[in-house]
Design a protein around this nucleic acid. Structure first.
Lengths: 211, 211
DNA sequence: CCGCATCCGGGGCGATACTG
DNA sequence: CAGTATCGCCCCGGATGCGG
């Protein structure tokens, strides 16, 4: 909350969103849309409750989030503009996903960041595909909320939720599931690392790497 | 230096460059290239010397900077990749430059960030132009190192230094100087706010806003 | 149970002094 | 010049309490 007091756009930005946990709160709202206080708490394992409350207050004063009825929080237009920042940082930090720590926490909706960064629809002219995802690091903790990866308007979107009759279903530990979705490892390698895949393998190949 | 311990690219990135002052050190090296310890200290007003030393150690261990002979620091290729992050944050924070605090510190080379973000060469086919810049908030402190803004390969570059026979010379307080360079205010308005401009006004119009 | 506020221990941070 | 050493302070993390 202490200012750098520099006439510099980077320093000014860090004055607002440079505090600990702040950009991770924005990540939660980008990935999940409107969130209740408890949703945010569950999506930010390790945060102290007073810090979450204080950061939310600060973000609201800064015009980055707004509290809606019932009480939930969502990003303002100004907050949505941080998507470019989160993507740039996520893209830079992507290389560290190759070597995860054993005690890293995990939430399924965190997958939406790398999926949106790296993937695009390889055949936007064809019928959309939908893949149901179940990623879990400890085999059924609070981290295995169901996810759907689907092609929408030539883009790849990831959202929490389920879908009837998906083109395919992928499940397993987060790292090989992500590796398979991104095309970094093939399905045989993924299966060797604990992944189960049911359905049309072509659905997976629709997701192609961008850049 | 404390880790978020999350299997998320954003959290991993913030584990490495999320600590206070860290990205500002990267900004210094992006804007000025190779820097001595004292150069960094002067370019980061307010930093404690022990923090600067600790951050430099951390950045070197993370492979973001390297120390060269004589002793100076420069970015590695991995560190250069943070340019996209700094640009994204700088672009988001640019709006706050409209309302600077009275006690904001200033260094001329900080101008290179907004100039590189917002400007491009409007006539890359023509002869390059060079504009000498003297921006100072207090009228001759340590913050008025001379700068050169020039067109190179269709891009706009800003670097510390001087040049013989510039196409134009602009001098004055940082905010109106930046506003005039970015085309946010016209020269008359800039002069009213303390700016002096000598030379060809067309040189200024070569710098056009991108996006 | 949700949404915090309060209290407290530890460590990161800020400022200054000091040294090779 | 290029850091190291030291010392308060305040932010952060973790636990608990408490009103709606």
């Amino acid at each position: 909350v202490r200012s750098y007091a520099q006439f510099c756009a980077l320093a000014k930005a860090l004055d607002v969103v440079g505090d600990r946990w702040t950009l991770l709160i924005v990540r939660e709202l980008l990935a999940r849309g409107s969130c209740r206080y408890t949703d945010l708490r569950d999506g930010l394992p390790g945060i102290a409750t007073n810090l979450l409350a204080e950061r939310l207050r600060h973000l609201e004063e800064a015009g980055i989030i707004r509290s809606t009825a019932g009480p939930a929080y969502e990003l303002t237009d100004r907050g949505e503009e941080l998507r470019a920042v989160v993507h740039a940082l996520g893209r830079w930090g992507g290389v560290y996903m190759a070597e995860p720590a054993d005690d890293d926490a995990f939430r399924s909706h965190w997958l939406s960041l790398p999926l949106e960064i790296y993937l695009t629809d390889g055949h936007p002219d064809r019928r959309p595909v939908r893949i149901a995802v179940r990623a879990s690091s400890n085999g059924g903790g609070k981290d295995d909320e169901p996810m759907v990866v689907e092609t929408v308007d030539g883009e790849v979107r990831a959202r929490p939720g389920t879908v009837d009759a998906p083109d395919a279903t992928i499940a397993g530990p987060p790292q090989p599931v992500l590796g398979a979705l991104l095309g970094l490892i093939d399905l045989d390698e993924a299966r060797r690392r604990g992944v189960t895949y049911d359905g049309d393998p072509k659905a997976l190949r629709r997701l192609t790497r961008r850049n």
